[in-house]
Amino acid sequence: MRQSVDTASLKPLTVPMPTTEKPRGLLPRGARRMAMLCQAPSVILLLLWMIVPLVMTVWFSLLHYNLMDEGRQFIGVMNYVYLFTDPSLTDALLNTLVLVVGVLLASVVLGTLIALLMNQPMHGRPVVRLLVIAPFFVMPTVSALIWKNMLMNPVSGLFAWVAHLFGFPGFDWFANAPLLSVGIIVAWQWVPFAALILLTALQSMDREQLEAAALDGARPLVLFRRIIAPHLARPVTVVILIETMFLLSVFAEILVTTGGGPGDDTTNLPYLIYKTALLDYDIGGASAGGLLAVVLANLVSIFLVRTVAKSLDR
């Protein structure tokens, strides 16, 4: 059904020639209709994409609906009662929070440091830049498996080999610090993103102002606090908001490394919902969890949309 809408937009749309002088700020009727027709397919598709699944999620969350017995029965808010009294949810929320905040901290701190470094004169800077940014383009399943198997493996991994060189035993990352291990892998993908954005912001800074301040004898730390940090405030906000969106839904990295374990130690909200839906076939319960995820993400998105809206007003 969705497919039928978009083909219409591909047909050539003809604009009637404006016959009269058009008044300022107002489009002639024909052009206005054309503008609406141009936007309609995208708007309608996105509207469906947003509303249909959401309404279904809300409805399913009020049902006892398990794919194993196929019976559906209205049970009111019982799925929510069940969800909020489930100790797994507390764990999942906590893990989600730790993962998001931890990776954000790493991204902002390391990202700023790397961006400042990349902004310095050096030989072969374009190559260094590529090296730093490259991890962002590695698909999550690949980065997770390379880290887990080849670097963090307690027996034959490279980290273990380095530890042995210094006379330490190999550290079993995923057994002793599972959430930290997942966090490191995720951070490795997102620090480059922060660095790239902050570097772009740094490069748009007023060079003369910086040089004048440096000539006046301002020490680097003062320079950073007084001039650079205020300039980075907005890009850092943007990094935090965008990364939060993605970090709230970290999934593949957990699936291929720990499968949410040991126990629930690395189960975050998306993974909990995935387990409920596709491993336990509990559609009602997973929908209730899904709705919780939507609400959480929307709280974040309100701030992001506001920040971005400001940039539209320039």
Binding site: S249, S301, L312
Partner: peptide, 18 residues
Amino acid sequence: LMWMLSTKMMPAVGVLVP
């Protein structure tokens, strides 16, 4: 435009089931 941006905020996992 802002509304379109906000649809991007919908977490995939929230609509996985439907």
